[in-house]
Amino acid sequence: MTIPTTPPPAHPWKTLLRVGSPRATRAMLLAFVLMLWLGFALATQVRQTSTQGLSTLREDELVRLLENVQRDNVRLAAEQQALQAERDKLVSGQESTAEARAAIQQRIDTLGILTGTLPAKGPGIELTISDPKGAVTAPLLLDAVEELRDAGAEAIQIDDVRVVASTYFTDGGTGVVSLSGTRLTAPYVIRAIGDPNTLAAAMEIPGGVSDTMRQASASMTSTRPNVVRVDALQTIPPARYARPVPTPSGVAS
């Protein structure tokens, strides 16, 4: 079956053509079939490669891929957990900060109104005591203040002096009353913030402040403005001796 080829200078191109020329031999047919198979396989493989997914990968490659995916999964899950925890912490921290701030502000407001360092406004009554004969004494005014406090007044001021825990009344002779060292002049104006009905009723009870004032030939009128302003302020000197005892629960609200 060896093709008798004329030694060397036979033209190579012609040789190729001669070999390829159709001859009805069995080998030629086989070669044709083989080449047919090669072309077919080539085209198929090219197409397969361009469309292949995971299904053509080898077992070890698949295992490696799977391991990669699992490792990534674990890493990402841990990262997600950490970030979630951080987020929760931040959110709750923000909330608790805001809550603490609100609680502290409320406390400051309450204490400020109580100690007279903050101006206050709200419903209440305004009492005007005219005293033409100078009959109003410190005990009388003190009675009025105590009565107002009993009736639930939250902030009280007489003329331009705020009435607080350390306020004191002194008599300075006929018709002269001093409040915490400030001399008051008639007519005395008492402004109190609280439930207006309760406060007014407390002033009018028989044998109460109003009656006593009338017996002392002073007269008292009360009005109920929509908004009573108690805007006289009191300065508090820092405590020199008293120190707060820390409560075990921390911030008491």
Binding site: L34, M35, W37, G39, L42
Partner: peptide
């Protein structure tokens, strides 16, 4: 020629 024809035919069929 024949083998080349076979190759091309195979590619086309594929």
């Amino acid at each position: 020629m024949i083998p080349l024809v076979g190759l091309l035919a195979g590619i086309i069929v594929g």
